[in-house]
Simulated assay, not measured.
Amino acid sequence: MAENEREGYQFIGWYIDPQYTKRINPGGKLPGAVTLYDKWVPIIYPVRYQCNGGINSRRNPRYVSVETGVKKLYPPQKKGMRFVGWSLDGKLIEYLPPRITRPITLEAQFRELCTVRFESNGGGRIPDKTTDEFGMIELFRPPMRMGYEFAGWYLDENLTFPFEFDMQVNESMTLYAKWNVKMYDIRYHVDGGVSSRMNPKQYSYFDQDIVLAPARKKGYRFTGWFDARGNALNHIRHHSIGDKEFFARFEKEETGE
């Protein structure tokens, strides 16, 4: 590099004061011994964008210099395509590097939008969904399956690797539903008595008919289980759903005199 060269800068001239207000004329005489100050200004370089049919973001910088710091790059928009990144010298970048000393050209890289298919594994059908331009799919209502509760979508058939909706989808794929058997609670109101230990606290849609054992209350005779409406009910039928409440009724035992 020559004496009056500085990468990324343009030499303006020599000055006799550090504030750069008094410039000396080339070839002029200096008044005896004097300290000279060299002045430089950064060269402004253009940034060109090849959007390949897309529309560039207005927030992307148009010019840079050696004094420009790291600059974030924003994605262009292209209908029906997903932006992958800006390519600089064959490498994908998200930020312009600092201390640029040349004009640069960035090329937008796009991919086709991905299709996500869903295997509900016995649940309701979910139609295929297409990712947006950022490779994301919107959160949606999960499928339903009688007797089960939905436990999430997974990336593999063995249900080992869960899928989260903040994950970016980079290729078309199939997601698999995981299910757990839904357990329903059973509550017993015994009016001061004691329910049998044989009576379950939970049940599922798949259980066979459950016949409730009687409750006990000292000095009283158990007359049956009833629902909240007062209907006699001493069992839970196979393929029932929902939490259950049972109310025990008693009659006071007569004591002989």
Score class of each variant (00 low, 15 high):
residue 169 V to H: 02
residue 203 Y to T: 02
residue 192 G to D: 07
residue 173 M to G: 00
residue 193 G to L: 00
residue 160 T to M: 15
residue 194 V to W: 04
residue 169 V to D: 05
residue 177 A to Q: 10
residue 192 G to K: 01
residue 171 E to G: 07
residue 161 F to S: 11
residue 194 V to R: 09
residue 156 D to P: 04
residue 190 V to E: 13
residue 185 D to Y: 09
residue 207 D to Y: 02
residue 182 K to G: 03
residue 200 P to W: 12
residue 174 T to K: 06
residue 166 D to E: 14
residue 156 D to T: 01
residue 185 D to P: 00
residue 154 Y to C: 07
residue 179 W to S: 04
residue 193 G to P: 01
residue 154 Y to A: 10
residue 156 D to G: 05
residue 185 D to H: 09
residue 186 I to F: 10
residue 160 T to V: 15
residue 200 P to G: 12
residue 200 P to L: 10
residue 179 W to M: 03
residue 184 Y to V: 02
residue 165 F to W: 02
residue 155 L to D: 00
residue 196 S to H: 00
residue 186 I to Y: 09
residue 175 L to E: 11
residue 159 L to E: 15
residue 184 Y to H: 10
residue 184 Y to M: 07
residue 163 F to G: 01
residue 185 D to K: 11
residue 204 S to N: 12
residue 183 M to K: 14
residue 189 H to P: 02
residue 164 E to C: 10
residue 173 M to I: 08
residue 201 K to H: 11
residue 191 D to T: 09
residue 154 Y to M: 09
residue 162 P to T: 13
residue 170 N to G: 08
residue 159 L to V: 12
residue 196 S to M: 00
residue 195 S to P: 03
residue 191 D to V: 00
residue 205 Y to G: 00
residue 171 E to C: 08
residue 158 N to V: 12
residue 194 V to A: 07
residue 158 N to W: 15
residue 176 Y to A: 07
residue 169 V to R: 01
residue 205 Y to N: 01
residue 180 N to D: 14
residue 175 L to R: 06
residue 199 N to I: 09
residue 169 V to C: 03
residue 201 K to Y: 10
residue 164 E to P: 00
residue 205 Y to T: 01
residue 206 F to N: 00
residue 201 K to A: 06
residue 153 W to L: 08
residue 162 P to Q: 11
residue 175 L to I: 05
residue 177 A to E: 10
residue 193 G to N: 02
residue 157 E to C: 09
residue 170 N to L: 14
residue 167 M to R: 08
residue 177 A to L: 06
residue 163 F to Y: 12
residue 167 M to N: 14
residue 186 I to L: 06
residue 155 L to Y: 09
